[in-house]
Each structure stands twice: as C-alpha cells, then as structure tokens.
Simulated assay, not measured.
Amino acid sequence: MEVGVRAEAYHEEGPNRHINSAFMTFEVLDDGGKPRTLPRIRPEPLEGQRRFQEATARKKIRLDRYVSSNTFVVQLCVYLSFNNVSALKMLAARSSWRLSCEKDQVQLYTLEQKSMLSFKIECEVDVPAHRAFDLLAELSNRPSWDSHYKKCELIQLVDNDDFIYRVVTPSVRHGAMGSPTAANQAKGILQDFILLASKRKPCGSGSVEPDPSTCVLHGHSYNRGEVLCAGFTILETKDNKSLISYFNQASPEVLPYISTDIAGLSSSFYHTFCSCSQYLTRNRL
C-alpha cells in the first residue's frame, strides 16, 4: 500500500509553497505476521485516477530495479557455483596425495602444488550416501558437531542448490584449530567467512558433493578470511556405507587452523571428524 506525503511551507498571506513530496510503501500484516492481501482499490475519478496510475508506475519501476539486481546476483552465484564444484572435483581427482597421519581409520592427506598446500581428511561411516549428503549439505547444522564453527547463519537462498552463509570461527594465528592465541582472546578477535555453499548430486553413479567456497567481503570487528576451494565428496561403498572425504586448499587464513595437525603434533582433525561421524550416525534415519 503506497502512501503519499506532501510537505508545504505555510504563509499567513498568499498560497502555501510546495517543499517536497515523498511516497512510502507500507506492508499490512495479518495476526500471524504475514503480508495480508488488501481489497482491490477503486480510485476516485480524475485526480484519484491520475494518482493511482502514477503509483502503479512507481511500483513497476521498483520491481524492475529489484528483479534486475537480483537476477545479476543469481547469475553470478550460478557461475561461481559451477566453478566451485568443478574445482573441488579436480582437486579430488589428483593422484599425488600423500598420507601424513592416520588414527583409527581416519586419514589426513596433503598435496603440495606450486606453493599451494591442500589437505584431505577421509574416513568411512556406516550411513547411506544419500543420507550423509543431506546431513552435510545443511551447513547450518555444522556448529552442532564442529567446535571450530562458533556460528553459521544463512544469509541468502540463491536457489535450491546454492546458499550464501556467514561463518564465524575463533581467530587462530598460531596453534591448533580451536585454540586462539592469548592476544586474540584478549582482543576478542574472531575470524569470519562468507561462504557460497553449493550442493550437487551426480547424474549417475559416483560421488556426491556439497561444496562451500567463498566470496571475500569486509567486516567490522572481524578478520575476514578467504577459502579458495573446500568441500565434501561422498562416495557410496559396500554394505550401504559411505566414504566421506573433506578437501581444503589452505589459504593463509585457513593454514593456522591445520598446521599443527599436518606436523603431527595435534589430533584436532581426528576429534572433529569423529564428531562428524557421530553426527551422521546419530541422524542416520
């Protein structure tokens, strides 16, 4: 519902002087807090008809601006999502992964390419692949099993397969993931990421990939980091089990979280993946 406002300068003598006009759109809500459809309006003849037509034109202009802007965002996200999934599949297909450490059938692999360090964490879980896909694709559930995710909130639903999230983690300059330095603790500094999460099921048999990647923005009271390529692949194995693999190209913002794990000094990755396995098993049905 559009409401027009007219401001005038008042004079004791002579006509009032027009200062400004404004048009505001109000939304009428029902008892449940949802938008209510108003009765059709029949404008008054002449002046009322003119104002009604002008209001209709303004509404169309606003909608055209919104659709144009929103279409660009969707097209950009679709393009980035294609790159997300392609980059993850290429990273997963590399044959030169080196086993760094293993504990209770949870393996940590590393891959060095042109000054770029990538890592892969892998284990088998007793959960069907399609169910593991649904659980891991719901990124907002990750704080329930990953202690390194302090907060994960959905910012925008792009389409049925692509979502924009904001993730907050402790800021780590040295030490294992989840162990921020005393200086950063004292300052209350947090690291955050804006993630474009893409999930894709294969057309045929094979792996299934929900894949978060990032767009980098500037934040306040946070160190905003960048993830180059990261995500899960899920491969169905025998006895209705799944091989879960997590990949990450370690950017400077991510490397401090896993450096001690790769050096073999910490089992943080192991406990996180055990927690992930327990989350999947607990919600198997």
Rank of each mutant, 00 (worst) to 15 (best):
S69I: 04
T71M: 12
T71A: 08
F72L: 11
V73L: 09
V73S: 03
Q75A: 11
V78N: 14
Y79A: 15
Y79P: 06
L80Y: 04
L80Q: 09
S81K: 05
F82N: 14
N83E: 13
N83K: 14
N83T: 09
N83C: 07
N83R: 14
N84Q: 11
V85F: 06
V85C: 07
V85N: 12
V85W: 02
A87W: 08
A87Q: 14
K89T: 02
K89W: 02
M90N: 13
L91R: 07
A93Y: 10
R94V: 11
R94G: 09
S96K: 15
S96R: 15
S96W: 12
S96L: 12
W97D: 04
R98T: 13
L99M: 09
L99I: 09
L99E: 13
S100K: 14
S100A: 14
S100D: 13
C101P: 00
E102L: 06
E102F: 01
K103N: 02
D104I: 01
Q105C: 10
V106H: 02
V106L: 07
Q107C: 08
L108T: 01
Y109Q: 08
Y109F: 15
T110S: 10
E112R: 09
Q113T: 11
Q113K: 10
S115W: 03
M116S: 12
M116Y: 03
L117N: 09
S118M: 07
S118F: 02
S118D: 04
S118H: 05
F119M: 07
F119A: 03
F119I: 07
K120E: 08
K120S: 07
E122P: 01
E122I: 05
E122C: 12
E124R: 11
V125A: 03
D126C: 12
V127H: 01
H130I: 09
R131P: 00
A137F: 01
L139K: 04
S140Y: 00
N141R: 01
P143D: 06
P143F: 00
P143I: 00
S144W: 01
W145A: 02
W145G: 01
W145I: 02
D146S: 02
D146L: 05
D146W: 02
H148V: 10
H148D: 14
K150Q: 11
C152G: 04
E153H: 03
I155H: 06
L157T: 14
V158P: 03
V158Y: 08
D159N: 15
N160M: 05
D161S: 11
D161G: 08
D162Y: 01
D162S: 14
D162E: 13
F163C: 05
F163K: 06
I164R: 04
I164M: 13
I164G: 03
R166H: 06
V167C: 09
V167Y: 03
V167G: 06
V167A: 12
V167R: 00
V168N: 04
P170W: 10
P170K: 11
P170H: 10
S171K: 13
H174D: 12
H174V: 14
A176S: 13
A176G: 09
G178P: 04
G178K: 05
G178Y: 11
S179M: 09
S179V: 03
P180S: 13
P180F: 04
T181G: 15
A182I: 12
A182G: 04
A182N: 11
A182P: 05
A183N: 13
N184D: 15
A186H: 12
K187Y: 07
I189M: 10
L190H: 14
L190C: 12
Q191Y: 03
Q191N: 07
F193Q: 08
F193G: 03
